[in-house]
């Protein structure tokens, strides 16, 4: 995926401090997401990836800092939510409904027009699964449904958390194709990941460690990861932690 050159900022995070319980997870994060790019937030378990993504989306109350999405301060106006899409790390579709019902309910929640259903079903190749119940789905198909739901409202910004971790290759390729097309249309994506194998699908990497963020190019990030792993010679690498 290529970096588009115009550098319009769609999400701007400044001085984000977030406490979860008594623990300060984010200690003053500054981060920009540009239009058309896919920015990966990398961190091992418990470093606050999901916390950062949820704060950026405006669903978690933050301790301090400002977040602007598409030029609007999200504390003051929630109109931006019309232009957002979300895929969570934990399963969060309606477990009591089947695939078609889930898509339709998400259409309602996101105030998307009816015609969008056909488009996302076709893009994510869900035609054969519409009558299936969620517990019976494979993880990969589940993620496709989740992405389909997120794309219903034609979001300009997509926030996805660990969408392709540990899923079957077919679903992975479907999802990556859809995401590529999505970015081609000038949209942006902020995604959490913890497996360096996937780093080359990204434009930039925001490395989260000890509550702070450092920006790397994918190559830099991969090199740092290798160096870190070399320091722990005898133990197994935590590539998939």
């Amino acid at each position: 995926m290529k970096n588009t050159g115009d550098k319009e900022v769609v999400i701007s995070i400044r001085g984000l401090v977030q406490k979860v319980g008594k623990r300060t997870v984010l200690k003053g994060v500054d981060l920009d997401l540009y239009r058309g790019e896919c920015l990966g937030v990398f961190g091992l378990r418990g470093t606050g990836k999901t916390t950062l993504l949820h704060a950026a989306l405006g669903v978690d109350r933050i301790k301090s800092g400002t977040i602007e999405i598409l030029g609007q301060n999200i504390a003051k106006n929630q109109a931006y939510k019309k232009k957002m899409g979300l895929v969570t790390q934990q399963p969060s579709l309606f477990a009591d409904l089947n695939v078609a019902e889930n898509l339709d309910l998400f259409r309602v929640i996101k105030k998307a027009p009816f015609e969008r259903l056909e488009d996302v079903i076709q893009r994510l190749q869900l035609e054969d699964y519409l009558r299936e119940t969620l517990p019976s789905l494979q993880v990969g198909v589940y993620q496709r449904v989740a992405l389909a739901c997120a794309l219903l409202n034609r979001p300009e910004i997509l926030i996805i958390d660990e969408i392709i971790r540990d899923i079957d290759l077919e679903s992975r390729s479907v999802i990556l194709q859809v995401l590529e097309a999505y970015l081609e249309e000038g949209n942006s994506c902020l995604c959490g990941f913890s497996n360096m194998e996937h780093v080359h699908y990204l434009d930039r990497v925001a490395w989260l460690d000890d509550g702070m963020v450092k920006i790397y190019s994918p190559d830099e990030a991969e090199n740092i990861w290798k160096e870190l792993n070399a320091v722990i010679p005898k133990k197994r690498g935590e590539q998939d932690a």
């Binding site: 929630q78 957002m84 969060s92 309606f94 929640i109």
Partner: peptide, 13 residues
């Protein structure tokens, strides 16, 4: 409990 409330929070509803 089903973790779906987040979609209502994130929605323009």
């Amino acid at each position: 409990e089903g973790n779906t409330w987040i979609h209502y929070l994130a929605s323009p509803l």
